[in-house]
Amino acid sequence: MEISTISADQAYQMVQENKCNLIDIRELNELELTGRVEGANHIPMGNLETLLDPNSDVFKNGQIDKNKEVVLFCAGGVRSEMSVKSLTKKGFKNISHIEGGFGSIINSSFKIV
Rank of each mutant, 00 (worst) to 15 (best):
G39V: 03
N21K: 03
N61Q: 12
T34D: 13
Q63M: 15
M45A: 12
M45I: 14
T34F: 15
D57N: 06
G35F: 12
M45W: 02
N41E: 12
L28A: 12
D65R: 06
K66C: 04
E38T: 08
D65V: 06
L52T: 08
S56R: 07
P54C: 06
H42K: 05
D53C: 09
C20I: 06
F59S: 12
D57M: 09
E32S: 15
N47V: 04
I43K: 08
T50H: 11
C20F: 00
A40I: 00
I23F: 01
I25P: 03
G62I: 06
L28Q: 12
I43S: 07
E30V: 08
H42D: 03
E30R: 06
R36I: 00
N29A: 07
Q63R: 15
N29V: 05
R26A: 02
L51V: 00
D57I: 11
G62W: 08
L33W: 00
D24R: 02
L33D: 07
D57K: 09
G35Q: 11
R36S: 13
L28V: 12
E49W: 12
V37H: 12
L22W: 01
N41M: 10
I43V: 14
N29G: 00
L22F: 01
G35M: 11
N29E: 13
K60N: 14
L28G: 02
K66N: 13
N21Y: 02
I23K: 05
D57F: 04
E27N: 07
E38K: 14
G62Q: 13
L22Q: 00
D24T: 03
N29S: 10
I25K: 01
F59I: 13
V37C: 08
S56A: 15
N41T: 08
D65L: 04
L48Q: 06
A40H: 02
G35P: 08
E38L: 10
P44M: 03
R36F: 07
I43D: 06
E49Y: 11
N47W: 09
N55S: 14
A40N: 01
